[in-house]
Each structure stands twice: as structure tokens, then as C-alpha cells.
């Protein structure tokens, strides 16, 4: 096996392992911290795929933003003492069955479908091309996205005010 392949399997293992921790851990603090491994692992996978910009965005937004938000929410809504009981899970068996079937079907589809192949696989910096596309072909979605973010900003501020009127 090549060196790169080994690295890929390592990263995939870290990603999936910590994702499993997120899904199965009984302690919500562990879950939240395992999310870090998943996000970082996904960022590494993006790097493997030559998507430097997306990887950077992943680190900045997921690790730097969303994860911190989630940790804040966990800390704010739990007394540390009873973290164990608040993360209860119900209906594990039927869920495992359904999800297992689902995964096996997905994998089957992935293996059987004849995916289209690109003529050549390039590793080049993508940031400037993404920037160009954002301001040309995807200008409208881009502007809409900024609107959505603004709405989310205001919404979050309004929702989380202390004096919630009944």
C-alpha cells in the first residue's frame, strides 16, 4: 500500500470513529468533543480531494464556529453533574436495523453505479476560481446567502434574548 493510501485510511478511521462516538456516546460532553475529530477529519479529506478553500472554510466555520456554539449550548443547558442522564437514547434496536439496511443499500448503489469520470484530475489552488464563480454565475445565490445569514443573525439574537415574553 502506498503511503498516501495509508494516510487516507487513517483519516477515514479518525473521522468515522469520532462520528461513531458522537452517535453512540452516553455523555453529551464526549459527543460534543468527538465532533471536533469528525470536523477535522472531514477537513483533511477535503485536502485530500484538492479542495483547499473548502477545507479552510470547514476548519474556520465548523471547528471555529459551529463547534464552539454547540459547546456553549451544552454548557448553558446542563448542570455538569447530571450530564449522564440527559443524553438518553430511545429505540436503539429499530434504529440500528433501519440505519443498517440503509447503509448497505447505499454502499451497494455506490459500488454498482458507473460514475462519470473526469478526463484528468487536477490539483490546483481553487480559491480564485471559486471567488470568480461566486461573483459571476452564482451571484444571486451568493447574495441570497448573505441575506439568509443576516436573517439568521437577527433571528438568533431575538430568540436568545433573556426576557422572553410569554
Amino acid at each position: 500500500m502506498e503511503f498516501a493510501t495509508v494516510i487516507f485510511y487513517l483519516i477515514a478511521a479518525v473521522t468515522i470513529g469520532s462520528a461513531a462516538m458522537v452517535a453512540f456516546s452516553r455523555n453529551i460532553i464526549y459527543s460534543a468533543f468527538s465532533l471536533l475529530g469528525t470536523f477535522a477529519g472531514v477537513a483533511a479529506i477535503y485536502v485530500f480531494l484538492g479542495a483547499d478553500f473548502v477545507a479552510a472554510v470547514q476548519v474556520l466555520i465548523y471547528v471555529g464556529g459551529i463547534l464552539v456554539l454547540i459547546l456553549f449550548a451544552v454548557m448553558l443547558t446542563h448542570r455538569i453533574a447530571d450530564v449522564q442522564i440527559t443524553n438518553r437514547a430511545v429505540g436503539r434496536i429499530p434504529a440500528l436495523v433501519v440505519v443498517g439496511v440503509f447503509l448497505s443499500l447505499l454502499v451497494q448503489i455506490i459500488r454498482e453505479t458507473p460514475w462519470q469520470k473526469a478526463k484528468e484530475i487536477v490539483y490546483a489552488p481553487t480559491t480564485s476560481r471559486i471567488g470568480d464563480l461566486f461573483l459571476e454565475n452564482y451571484l444571486l445565490p451568493f447574495e441570497l446567502a448573505s441575506l439568509v445569514l443576516l436573517a439568521a443573525l437577527i433571528g438568533a439574537a431575538v430568540l436568545s434574548r433573556k426576557e422572553l415574553k410569554e
Binding site: 466555520i61 454547540i70 484530475i121 446567502a145 439568509v148 439568521a152 438568533a156
Partner: peptide, 29 residues
């Protein structure tokens, strides 16, 4: 990376990340 050979897929990924951020902010609020 493998199929289309251009960066449009990555654009969608960035949009998803953006929406995830909005969703997380609102959801946690």
C-alpha cells in the same frame, strides 16, 4: 474532484456549510 473536474461542486459545499452555520445559530438559539 473525480467526476466533473471543475469547482462547482465545491461551491455547493460552501453553500451547505454556510447554511449549516445559519442552522446551528438558529437551532441553538
Amino acid at each position: 474532484h473525480f467526476s466533473s473536474g471543475n469547482v462547482e461542486g465545491q461551491i455547493y459545499a460552501v453553500f451547505v456549510i454556510m447554511l449549516a452555520a445559519a442552522e446551528a445559530a438558529i437551532g441553538l438559539a
